[in-house]
Design a protein around this nucleic acid. Structure first.
Ligand SMILES: [Mn+2]
Ligand SMILES: [Mn+2]
Ligand SMILES: [Zn+2]
Ligand SMILES: [Zn+2]
Lengths: 138, 138
DNA sequence: AAATAAATGCAATTTAAGTGCATTATTGTC
DNA sequence: GACAATAATGCACTTAAATTGCATTTATTT
């Protein structure tokens, strides 16, 4: 059990009611969520506030945005890897074309790619599309 | 010099004036183009037609869409690889955060990734963000 | 408590993507 | 070539996500 309030404070985010609720909501989701998904999870509050909240989380390094090719942004918590520091980056994402869910495969890192001379890598984004284990029935 | 009309016919696309023009336009571009880019390249014709044209090209396997994370779709020609057949897929894309250009690195294939049991891969999309050789000055 | 700064709610804007439908052009049949 | 059938085009309109402006409310600082 983590102290959510403390997590937000540690990221220089003031722990308002909605922020605490959204953080918990994100924690409980196994899959990446669109803003609509998040909105559906809240009776109270309003789209703009939720939008600005998720953007604050993103800027402060609490969540990362995932572009899975569906055209709508999804968000997932930066779940800290035990033992590692700031190394939760560059994992790959899987998008199921059957159930439309997208998830982080946090322990599948993107392999190193060597580029032609002159190209400088700053970030990488690898999305695999296919059928997830729930949908493939395997 | 390829016969553009024949290329279209070979892909079951009727070679209308606009289609011929757009194909040539795509051929001449080193980088992936948004619909706006394409529109800017044509005095005549109209956005919807260009949209439907690029979608026809995509469906018939003449171009592929690239989602580079900027939120707007880009398109690039499926340039046939000499000797290979249908194997022009799964190359990676580079998006320059400086000049905002996106390009196909057609001879950099996406490495094979082994997924957890139950996951079935259908397609992969790898975008590397950074600074291109033009912008890095290297 | 008053002043200051930040967060929220609601309305409105922006922009890319996509659809409906009438018009025009092309193709196949006689 | 005339005619019918089919496909392509142009224009208006819609949809949906993302984003901003601004007034109001809430929290923080002095
Ligand atoms: Mn992730
Ligand atoms: Mn490409
Ligand atoms: Zn699935
Ligand atoms: Zn560049």
């Amino acid at each position: 059990m983590v102290n959510v309030e403390q997590v937000l404070k540690d990221h220089q985010i003031r722990p308002t009611a909605i922020r605490l609720l959204m953080y918990r909501f994100l924690t409980e989701s196994e899959v990446a969520l669109t803003l609509n998904d998040i909105e559906s999870g809240f009776d109270q509050s309003e789209r703009t506030t939720l939008y600005r909240t998720i953007k604050t989380f993103e800027k402060k390094g609490l969540v990362h945005q995932i572009d899975d090719g569906t055209g709508v942004a999804k968000y997932a918590l930066d779940r800290p890897v035990a033992g590692k520091q700031a190394e939760q980056d560059l994992h790959l994402h899987f998008h199921c074309t059957s159930c439309n869910e997208t998830l982080c495969l946090t322990d599948h890192k993107i392999p190193h790619i060597s580029l032609p001379k002159g190209f400088v890598t700053e970030d990488m984004n690898l999305v695999i599309k296919g059928v997830c284990e729930k949908c493939s029935g395997q």
